[in-house]
Design a protein around this nucleic acid. Sequence first.
DNA 1: GCTCTGCGTGAAACCAGTTACAGAAAAATC
DNA 2: GATTTTTCTGTAACTGGTTTCACGCAGAGC
Lengths: 361, 361
Amino acid sequence: MGARPTIHDVATRAKVSPATVSRLLNGSARVGPDTEAVVRQAMEELGYVPSRLAQSFARGSSRTIALLVDGDGQSLQGNAFLMTIALGLGDVLADADYSIRIINGHQAMRQNRQSAAEWTRDRWRRHEFDGAVITNPTMTDALIEAIGAASIPAVVIGRYPHAQGLVQVDVDNVGGMRMATTHLTEQGHRRIAFLGPPPSLTVSSDRRQGYMEALARAGIKSDSDWLLETEGTDLEAFSFEAAHRTMTSALNQPWSWTAVVACNDEMALGAVRALTEKGLRVPEDVSIVGFDDLPFAHMVTPALSTVHQDIRQLGQHAGRALLAAVEGKPVAELTIQTVSFVTRASTAKANAFDWALDLET
Amino acid sequence: MGARPTIHDVATRAKVSPATVSRLLNGSARVGPDTEAVVRQAMEELGYVPSRLAQSFARGSSRTIALLVDGDGQSLQGNAFLMTIALGLGDVLADADYSIRIINGHQAMRQNRQSAAEWTRDRWRRHEFDGAVITNPTMTDALIEAIGAASIPAVVIGRYPHAQGLVQVDVDNVGGMRMATTHLTEQGHRRIAFLGPPPSLTVSSDRRQGYMEALARAGIKSDSDWLLETEGTDLEAFSFEAAHRTMTSALNQPWSWTAVVACNDEMALGAVRALTEKGLRVPEDVSIVGFDDLPFAHMVTPALSTVHQDIRQLGQHAGRALLAAVEGKPVAELTIQTVSFVTRASTAKANAFDWALDLET
DNA sequence: GCTCTGCGTGAAACCAGTTACAGAAAAATC
DNA sequence: GATTTTTCTGTAACTGGTTTCACGCAGAGC
């Protein structure tokens, strides 16, 4: 058939005004039952679908939310996280007829020498999106602050200390780590190391705190020798390689712990590698727990005991919060999502010898 | 201050017509040098940014491409793949001022009881996007065919046999598997098993073919006992669990191979688990290779030897192809991207004993 | 000096909806 | 039965750009 039918065509065919069709379409006002029937039939016959372009334009809103990513990051791991968040957002936002657009801040530089923050703000002003989701620590602090300052409705996933007025959604890092550590104490471990970056980011400090709390609750006096700190920039310090290096050098000196809690799964695997290279077995010689329950955590051998978080649900929380923010409704400043510990094969009971050793000291 | 400046405000301030401003903005016609200076200054002073909503509307195109995903899939692994593809698309499309929208076909059902295919077609007709990227086997055949039939510009990632006129982009599955298998023969292995789903999908049949070819080239006569077939629906048959089951039952019978090539990394890990449970060591007792080089492949112990594919680059290829398709330029029907084999710790030389055994038969 | 060409520019139509306003008809109230 | 209220519908302005067409003006060609 010819060109795409417009609301006008429908109106003509149904012998009503376009206004009436529009009203029927989005229920903005009441329409008589017989009129409705006629119009619906006309729409049916013409196969009419309203142009979203025109709708957005007329309404002055694209009903789109932006998922801000920093596309230079090579981390496939992070990508899995992001896409899962995106799906969670979609679960919530699709019902409200919003769609999700991926905006890669890193491209700003390449394109117009603008800062990512300015660039994002411009795109917001161009009505490319109504609100944004930012994942920390993927994005730089400057960007997050700029978003806040421009008063763009936004939610930050992963806590961010300096965000003013920004809505935040995060998993219970301290609770999760407490559960992981407690699992080890319950298995009889008394000397437990923590492998992680220095507490410069909220994630790392929260997780370390959870470890500390669990120790305290179990009546164990923590030892600074048990703090295995990785090195590198913020993101590097969370990596497999950093964990492997730190663990290897720790094993080159005398050590006393029988279990290690790693700041995330990737680092747990780094530890496993280092241990294996020294001829030690997991979990027979040392138990290991991780955090995140990444997709591969149950596939590695031994399967990793770790803290599970429902990332898609996290995305849904973020979606709901953002929706409220965009529509100007009141929003909780901070939503913390609960996590759970899953016991697999990388942890085992502390053996009798270790018990004895511990009682001795 | 006050309201957002429009092209009209700029025109008034610069004492020209809006048409001239528009022309300058997108270089659609020449503008005198002095006019240009005046207009640019006016834009600067007002802090003018054109409304993308209005632009899209006027041009009748949203300059958006859709990344079609099937959001019910729980596979975080697949999510990493999708987001990486998205970033690759972005690398190419952002330069052409296109943006990427995630469209989750699975939500169609929940929402309007429409089939995903109809739903997608409607959204296309609503001008929500100009072209689409489909990843196979995430999406159903029906959808892919419907997209083709509706003549929506689209590219399929991963080959799809029944696609007519659809542009396809894929990695070199047969070449990759040939390399992986050849690596094993070069290490002295003569009896090599293939762990994978039956060849119902293009991916699986291509990969199996690569294995066969490598065997043939090495002068090895393949044995049907070496074909370890997993079971389950298309996607399940590619999973860790399926591989683990098949491998376990294979090990409960006498077997003769000294190495196994798995259809993908996940399945390789399933094999490692089964082997380990039987007290066999990787790679000392049996060597294993995978395919995909997923992010964790180098983090597991032993690190997995596997076929590496540059997924982001794959996304870039797809982006270029789609761009051409959208703009009506000629496009190569099929782009095959080369892959490389990376040797890590899960493969080792066949030992002398096995050699002897082989010569004997 | 007159016509021809081409460049730069403005006026106005156009894209496809939404919505404020007003008016007519029907229903409710007194 | 007259008045008020409510419900339904149409008219027309508006969203902010793009693009066609026509025209004025300058330099080139004769």
